[in-house]
Design a protein around this nucleic acid. Structure first.
Length: 265
DNA sequence: AATATTGTTCAGCA
DNA sequence: GTGCTGAACAATAT
């Protein structure tokens, strides 16, 4: 489920493999995840181009391919990249592949087709058009700015954290993790939260994102005290020994520990 | 074999 | 208009 830390990990993977390489040939599945372009058009756009630089915003990865074009990758919930040498190899459920100037290949996989590959003129326009809020890592988001963006929301704090127009990059798993850490029930209405609690959530967001990016978004490497490796009903809460429950909040499955996560005080 | 899965979009509603 | 909720979508693992 690629959220900000996962996509940041993909970006670093891309940077250490395909960046600065030239595309000998690009190929995409016509029934795959192309948005607004045919498979032939996609190949024509990318053939001969060099991956010049990358930029991540929330769950979106942008690659500058020159001539005023950017290649946008979105991973949906099942997307990933695979870099490999053997031309007979491929990523499972591969939807696009780039043969690079060094003979290696970069594959884009997406088991379900919820992700997107797109050629766009400008990432900033894309971000504005999709009403994406600031990326918490890439922008210098102050607490005051965060509070102003979130404080007047009416729904649950979990829904607000997942709302990409407030802050871009948090999804189901990391919103749960951020709230777990500070002992706040995901059902809690934003309006019930005081300045202090919003500040703790803000801090928790940075702690969680920083640590999980460091661990390359691999839950097996997360600290024992994290919720994500115990994200199943009936699991023992690593913070207080309570029992992890699964509930539905804003139409999404939320995991939390009712023993130490409470509604706003 | 029915069910759960989750990011995004959008219809519908307050 | 606005913003929120819930459903739909994809298609596979369990």
């Amino acid at each position: 489920m690629p959220e900000l830390p996962d996509v940041e990990t993909f970006k670093r993977y891309f940077d250490s493999t395909a960046l600065h390489k030239k595309v000998r040939s690009a190929k995409a599945d016509p029934d795959g995840v192309l948005e607004g372009i045919t498979a032939a058009g996609f190949a024509r756009k990318l053939n001969g181009r060099t991956f010049r630089k990358t930029r991540r915003h929330g769950k979106h990865l942008f690659v500058d391919i020159g001539k005023g074009d950017w290649f946008m990758l979105h991973f949906g919930m099942t997307g990933y990249l695979k870099y490999y040498k053997d031309p007979d190899d491929s990523a499972e459920y591969q939807k696009a592949r780039f043969e690079l100037s060094n003979g290696y290949h970069l594959g884009y996989s997406n088991r379900r087709k919820l992700g997107k590959l797109q050629i766009i003129p400008d990432p900033d326009d894309f971000i504005a058009d999709h009403d994406l809020g600031p990326d918490p890592i890439e922008s210098d988001l102050s607490f005051a700015q965060f509070r102003d963006r979130i404080a007047d929301r009416r729904g649950s704090i979990k829904a607000a954290l997942m709302n990409q127009s407030i802050v871009a990059g948090l999804g189901n798993v990391y919103s749960d993790e951020i709230l777990f850490r500070v002992g706040i029930d995901p059902h809690t209405k934003v309006e019930k939260l005081g300045e202090k609690e919003l500040h703790r959530i803000f801090r928790s967001m940075y702690t969680v994102l920083g640590k999980t990016i460091e661990k390359q978004a691999d839950p097996e490497e997360f600290p024992r005290s994290y919720l994500t490796p115990h994200r199943e009903p009936g699991a023992t809460c690593p913070k207080c020994g309570g029992t992890i429950e699964k509930v539905t909040v804003s139409g999404r499955s939320a995991y939390y520990c009712p023993d130490h996560q409470r509604r706003g005080t």
